Amino acid sequence: MRATMPERSALPDKRQVAASFSRAAETYDAVADLQRAVGSQLLSLLPGEPVPRRWVDLGSGTGYFTRALASRYPQAQGLAVDIAEGMLRHARELGGAEHFIGGDAEHLPLREGACDLLFSSLALQWCADLPAVLGEARRVLRPNGMLAFSSLCIGTLGELRRSWEAVDGFVHVNRFRAFEDYQRYCAESDLDVLELCTEDRVLHFPDLRSLTHELKALGAHNLNPGRPDGLTGRERVRALVAAYERFRQPQGLPATYRVVYAVLRKS
């Protein structure tokens, strides 16, 4: 069994995550096709019953799924929670929730038994302490309440990671926890696991610049400790392009996202 501390130390500082996504608030939606597809798949996994009286969009971002949840549950009260104030400012203008709240998934600003559904799509991969997130979910959910989340695990952006490994020894690609860690933490959470699976989604880009531009526009570029400081030298960029070209497919340069889907219920 792996120790928890090395996993935590390998993940990004959430203050940097919040700042990065705040800066990306105006550009995020234009390049968020994958995020919308993954969140829609997560929505489809939600059971029809019971209908929540209050739901929370956790890591709500620009509010795309806040508005989707409001449409799905028109009689329920909705709350949007995000650590990035820039995202919340953007989402407030478009509505969908009764309250937009700055908050951290590891320390939810909600009282015990506050909601019936916690929905979180592609946000929890930035949380170093997943057991704390699951504990908070158990605390704020009412009996029979649901936690539905999608996240990312090892295997995500593997082509980019392996290409950088051929160039230098720095950390250039965001790290993610193993799927086995999700399985273990969910099993130990005292929540009933209704669904826990992975799916590979592969995007294709005409060139490396298009991929890195999208990552920056999403706010999801390299935020890890151990990343190199300063500008990347031209020789290293050329070497990276050459290394990545080895993965080229007829559709373009592939970028694999290994997505975790989970639906858990409080007994």
Rank of each mutant, 00 (worst) to 15 (best):
residue 242 A to M: 02
residue 251 Q to K: 14
residue 221 H to S: 15
residue 193 V to Q: 00
residue 103 G to H: 11
residue 4 T to P: 00
residue 219 G to W: 10
residue 166 A to V: 01
residue 247 F to H: 00
residue 198 T to D: 03
residue 107 H to S: 14
residue 37 A to V: 13
residue 86 G to H: 11
residue 144 N to G: 02
residue 67 R to F: 11
residue 181 D to M: 12
residue 26 E to I: 00
residue 113 G to H: 12
residue 84 A to L: 06
residue 117 L to R: 02
residue 200 D to G: 00
residue 178 A to R: 15
residue 32 A to F: 04
residue 29 D to T: 12
residue 57 D to N: 07
residue 249 Q to W: 00
residue 5 M to L: 15
residue 68 A to R: 15
residue 149 F to I: 05
residue 78 G to W: 02
residue 57 D to W: 02
residue 164 W to V: 03
residue 28 Y to R: 09
residue 251 Q to A: 15
residue 37 A to R: 15
residue 208 L to V: 15
residue 46 L to C: 07
residue 228 P to C: 11
residue 151 S to Q: 04
residue 122 L to R: 07
residue 69 L to E: 05
residue 34 L to E: 05
residue 90 H to Y: 15
residue 170 F to R: 13
residue 35 Q to G: 10
residue 10 A to I: 00
residue 141 L to G: 02
residue 136 E to T: 12
residue 3 A to K: 12
residue 76 A to K: 02
residue 62 T to M: 05
residue 227 R to N: 04
residue 74 P to I: 06
residue 5 M to R: 14
residue 11 L to G: 07
residue 106 E to Y: 06
residue 177 R to D: 05
residue 171 V to L: 03
residue 4 T to W: 12
residue 108 L to M: 13
residue 72 R to P: 06
residue 44 S to N: 12
residue 149 F to K: 06
residue 172 H to M: 09
residue 242 A to K: 12
residue 49 E to R: 13
residue 189 S to W: 11
residue 61 G to P: 10
residue 36 R to G: 05
residue 31 V to R: 13
residue 39 G to T: 09
residue 128 A to R: 08
residue 202 V to A: 04
residue 222 N to V: 01
residue 51 V to P: 01
residue 22 S to R: 03
residue 185 Y to H: 15
residue 181 D to N: 15
residue 155 G to Y: 03
residue 55 W to A: 02
residue 40 S to K: 12
residue 63 G to Q: 11
residue 196 L to W: 05
residue 139 R to S: 09
residue 92 R to G: 12
residue 117 L to Y: 02
residue 237 V to W: 15
residue 121 S to R: 08
residue 20 S to D: 07
residue 78 G to N: 05
residue 259 V to Y: 04
residue 161 R to Y: 05
residue 172 H to L: 09
residue 36 R to Q: 14
residue 45 L to S: 04
residue 76 A to D: 02
residue 30 A to Q: 14
residue 118 L to T: 07
residue 136 E to H: 08
residue 80 A to Y: 10
residue 9 S to W: 12
residue 199 E to L: 14
residue 5 M to S: 13
residue 107 H to W: 11
residue 38 V to K: 04
residue 224 N to W: 00
residue 38 V to Y: 06
residue 262 A to W: 04
residue 6 P to F: 08
residue 100 F to T: 06
residue 32 A to H: 01
residue 100 F to M: 06
residue 39 G to W: 08
residue 114 A to C: 08
residue 126 W to V: 08
residue 223 L to M: 11
residue 153 C to F: 09
residue 102 G to I: 10
residue 162 R to I: 00
residue 133 V to E: 08
residue 169 G to R: 15
residue 127 C to M: 14
residue 48 G to W: 07
residue 215 L to N: 01
residue 93 E to R: 15
